[in-house]
Design a protein around this nucleic acid. Structure first.
Lengths: 225, 225
DNA sequence: AGAATTACATGACAAATATCATATTTTAAG
DNA sequence: CTTAAAATATGATATTTGTCATGTAATTCT
């Protein structure tokens, strides 16, 4: 099974809702694309004519606030799909996607997927379930933003990255992002993000090597108020 | 067409994806329920065995934060459905629903809807689109929470209620909720919510009669920082 | 390598928001 | 109707977070 086939399966569920035939057809139509660190994959308001599947690298999905600041809504890694919502609703995308490091993606034209979405109810149902889970995650994030302190949110994103995207051989977080991006994820000023990370470092909760971050005391991080 | 039929159509889209026959069957199985102000319809973590359709009244969907405070995630009025996500994912519900005033609801057992969801691709697709829109709304709320001031969010929820749920003959907002609920929607302390509403009153942006609120200067509310 | 740019860091202060205390008003219960 | 309870209101104060200024370290460019 090709790399692309496996990535679709991962995102759109483990039950392999697409028949082997459908999968082969989609797989055949894919277009490989390379994006460099910082490169914009698509921007809020654009019309997408397909979905992007992440084969390698990490990107952020952001939304521009009225105050001019970008808010990171989600991080997407290998196996993740971009543009699902736009595909389903046939609306312009409401988020921007920017590569956080060098990425490899494949692009699946709308026409290919839409056929399956219309005819294969099991596939549609799987997309629906995936979307329902995204919605749940989004609700959780909303509550976190509304009710938790910036320090707490910072602790949680560090643990989130640790748990979901893993660490390298030396225990440094696999995903390396700027303090500005941390600020944008947590929803705070860049200086505040820097200050909090400095504080964590002083307290021995984390250590850093350049931009890389290592969690030294996961247990304490968990209980930060 | 019965009241219940029309409410399903409203939520699950305007294209009437269910056949007349399907609609009649669902409609026949519904169970009417009455909830009093403050009554809990279901609680976070419960297993729902169907969806609730709001025939009259308003309810809030809340999620408990780790700090013990409830966060209002969404307000639902006539025509709205509760429990969609749980229905689709077959997971326990992640939100609680509480009546904000006296309500009339109908309950549609899971078994009835699931059949349509499995067999009618158009219906599934409509649910999918609806969910995609909820997700978009949720992303917007997330950015608002992260990037806007409490005062701004309060101004926006007042305008939101005004625009979406309307006003009575004297221009008072149709939805009447406590300051505590306003605080829980906006994500702030009750005292802060009260203070901001008092300030709006002093500035002539709104006026109040008991718990009722009237927007006096929509234009200025719009530009609050 | 050296200059220029960008990211990181930290102090000083301002602004926003939370918390605690305590009235006052409104609503609900008997 | 009266009283108890709950909701609203507001002051005083503490805490959190943002903003501006300024300096240092790391990257990038040529």
């Amino acid at each position: 099974m090709s790399k692309c086939e496996s990535c679709i399966v991962k995102e759109f569920n483990s039950l392999k809702s697409l028949t082997r035939e459908e999968l082969m057809r989609v797989s055949a139509c894919k277009t490989g694309k390379i994006y460099k660190k910082g490169q914009v994959i698509f921007e809020e308001g654009e019309t997408l004519n397909g979905v992007y599947c992440v084969k390698d690298g990490v990107c952020k999905l952001t939304k521009l606030s009225e105050n001019g600041k970008d808010q990171v809504v989600k991080l997407v890694v290998k196996g993740g799909l971009l543009g699902k919502r736009s595909l389903v609703t046939e609306q312009k995308t409401n988020l921007s996607a920017v590569a956080l490091n060098d990425m490899e993606m494949c692009f699946i034209p709308k026409s290919e997927i839409m056929a399956d979405l219309a005819k294969n109810p099991k596939f549609t149902m799987d997309v629906l379930k995936k979307m329902a889970n995204d919605l749940k995650d989004s609700d959780i994030s909303l509550v976190n933003m509304a009710q938790k302190s910036v320090k707490r949110r910072m602790a949680e994103i560090l643990m989130y990255i640790h748990d979901n995207f893993g660490t390298d051989a030396d225990d440094y977080l696999n995903i390396v992002i700027s303090r500005e991006d941390y600020a944008s994820i947590v929803g705070t000023a860049t200086e505040s993000a820097i200050r909090i990370l400095s504080q964590f470092k002083k307290e021995g909760l984390i250590s850093t090597k350049g931009k890389q971050i290592k969690i030294e005391d996961y247990g304490s991080l968990k209980w930060i108020e």
